[in-house]
Nucleic acid binder design. Structure first.
Length: 268
DNA sequence: AGTACGTCCTGATCGC
DNA sequence: TGCGATCAGGACGTAC
């Protein structure tokens, strides 16, 4: 699933592929419900003839500032993929949204489960929800994480999924981080010691940094497509698989309806 | 306010 | 081998 490292990888791919500088000549969608704002007709009208200036990322959102000062905002949802391809190349059948570009290429938004979303806003702040600090930015300190968790009795795993706590975290990296930190996913957040929170903060940074480095290495190899997904999880995402650290049996539970894997021997 | 759960979606995977 | 059932989950709305 696209989480922070996957979205960042997509962003770097789009920059590498030359999206900035291109002008949008048209837009077509086979699933208008995904276009959240403004209404489709106005969305298309306001995109036409606009030049894309850059590709940024905030949390799991991809932000494309246009020459008008407005921002095109994309969220990949659960299965979204973006590809910059020649118009002559056959599109994947699950491509639901297409931006036609001035050089004949197309920015294609593939989205099998239709959880992806698109916005066009004069100010991105109108669209983005309250987001916490970027985990790989300067603001993500142990103190900041402690403040976000203070007084919260919900399972720490559930809180890691909240974008106001750690913007860009998702289910898989939450499990990975808790495993690296040796913290049980069901621990009430408020019960964590400052030391444990510091460990968790470092584990989050490590998990995301490591994934980013792997994507950076593999992007060149898989060009012109970005790599799909990491295969190197430290925590096996499989019931009863052996823990690589203690050899114990990995357990699977559900937290907030999200599949959650952890090692009962290593995570307390 | 904090917590939890249902909803949207359908390709992929599982089980018989 | 085929086919129906189940799984997967980010963000948001709703309920308590």
């Amino acid at each position: 699933m696209p989480e922070l490292p996957e979205v960042e990888n997509t962003r770097r791919y789009l920059v590498q592929a030359g999206l900035p500088g291109r002008t949008i000549t048209g837009f077509r969608t086979g699933w208008p419900k995904s276009v959240r704002k403004p209404a489709l007709e106005e969305f298309v009208l306001r995109l036409g003839g606009r030049r894309m200036e850059a590709v940024h990322r905030r949390a799991k959102y991809i932000l494309v500032p246009l020459d008008t000062g407005a921002t095109l905002i994309l969220h990949l949802g659960m299965a979204g993929r973006l590809r910059l391809q020649p118009g002559s190349q056959p599109a994947h059948p699950l491509v639901h949204h297409v931006f036609f570009l001035d050089d004949g290429s197309e920015l294609r938004f593939q989205d099998g489960r239709k959880f992806g979303k698109l916005w066009l806003a004069q100010d991105a702040m109108e669209v983005l929800p309250a987001l916490g600090p970027e985990p790989l930015g300067e603001g993500f300190t142990a103190e900041a994480l402690a403040r976000a968790l203070a007084g919260r009795i919900a399972p720490v795993k559930a809180l890691l999924l909240e974008q106001s706590v750690a913007a860009g975290m998702g289910n898989l990296y939450a499990d990975e981080s808790l495993y690296l930190a040796g913290i049980h996913p069901l621990r009430p957040a408020a019960g964590l010691s400052l030391q444990e929170i510091a460990r968790l903060r470092d584990a989050i940074v490590e998990a995301l940094t490591s994934a980013g480095a792997q994507y950076d290495r593999s992007r060149a190899e898989s060009w012109p497509d970005p790599p799909l997904a990491l295969e190197t999880w430290t925590i096996p995402r499989q019931l009863a698989a052996p823990c690589l650290r203690c050899g114990g049996s990995i357990e699977g539970i559900r937290v907030r309806a999200r599949s959650t894997y952890f090692c009962p021997g290593c995570q307390e």
